[in-house]
Every structure is written in structure tokens, then in C-alpha cells.
Amino acid sequence: MTGWVGSLFARELRIAVRVGGSGMIGVLFFLAVVSVIPFGVGPDLNLLARIGPAFLWIGALLATLLGLDRLFQADRDDGALDLLLMAGRPLELVVLVKCLAHWMATGLPLVVAAPVLAIFLNLSPTAIGAVTLTLLVGTPALTLIGAIGASLTVTLRRGGLLMAVLVIPLTIPILIFGVSAADAAVTDPVPFLTPFLILCALTLISAVVGPIASAMALRFSSD
């Protein structure tokens, strides 16, 4: 049982981090987005500290969306997706494993990069810790919800833009609670734990809904 899950996970991870994988490009994109923000809003450090968590979250959201179209597209192009579909394994679990591997390759580097970028935005140490923690909990949810969009648009040749449009409305709650929790750690209008626990709950919900809907879409796209 665990044998194929482990080997699938290892395969996905190897593909994602090898040359041509999008993990590092996602981090570069994240860096680029965060570094243009001061040019947009001005170099006022107090302002940057106040809106910094929000921009780190939006940057992470955009970077995640950018890498998501490769989640199933590459497998479809070389036929591996059909093999996965015919393998007789629970497709929901396959999707979940693929999402986890994809997150390890693209989401985790974003989380690791976030504290560095937070320094540019003049965040306090508490805020840096809070943002990193919320990103660590929240970015898997972005990947899992994005998987729905990725599998819906897998048959389209240039589905990346459409996928982003479809996915962004669904990620609003995660963005809200991620930023709220990060803000709450600094300027406590509410305790940090309340929005943070809701964010955890949202991640758990998307770990259920994402793979089920995504597997359903993949089955329909193949027949």
C-alpha cells in the first residue's frame, strides 16, 4: 500500500526539482513581485511594515498559481496521466500525493524565502515568524484548491490564465485568514490563534475537497 505512494511521491519530487522544474522560478517570481511593491507604494518603511504581510501573501498566492499549470499538464503531455488513471489506484490519493510533492517543490521554497523577503518589507521579528507560520499552513491549501483548477483546464493548451481566474475566487478565505492571523500577531485586535486555527481548518477542508473534485475532473477529462 505505502510502496506505490512513496515511489509516486519520490517520482513527482524528482521531476519537480530537476532542470526545467518550476520550483526555483516560483521563488524568483516571488522575489520579483515583492521587490516591485515599494516602487508602487513608496519606500515608507512604516507603511511597508503595515501592509507587508498582505503583500507576502499575495505574492505567494500568485507564485503558487503560476506553477500550478504544470501540476497535471506535463503528465498529460507524456502520457503518464493516462497510466495513473488506469493504474487502479484511488485517484484521489494520487492527486493528494502529487499535490504534496508539488507543494514540497514549489510551496515550501516560498515559505523558506518569506522571512528573507520580509526583511525587505521592514517586518518585526514577531511578524516575520507569524507570516512564515501562516504561509507554512496556508500554502498547501492554495496548492490543493489550485489542483481543482489545474485538472479542469488540463485539456486546454493554454489554460494557465483561465485556471488563475477560476481559482482566485476560491482562495479568498485562505488569503483573508492568512493575512488576518499574521496581522493579529502584531497589532492584536483578536488573538493570533483564532484566525490561525480557522486557517488550519480551511487547509484541512481543502485537503478533502481538492483531491475529490480534482480526481473527478481528471476522470472526466480522459474519457
Binding site: 481543482i148 479542469l152 477560476l166 475566487p169 476560491l170 475537497v209 473534485a213 473527478m216 475532473a217 472526466f220 477529462s221
Partner: peptide, 10 residues
């Protein structure tokens, strides 16, 4: 079918 899945997720 694709739109139906998205509608239900929505």
C-alpha cells in the same frame, strides 16, 4: 462536466 464540478466546488 468540468463546469459542473467547478459550480459545485463554488
Amino acid at each position: 462536466k468540468a463546469a459542473a464540478i467547478l459550480t459545485l466546488v463554488g
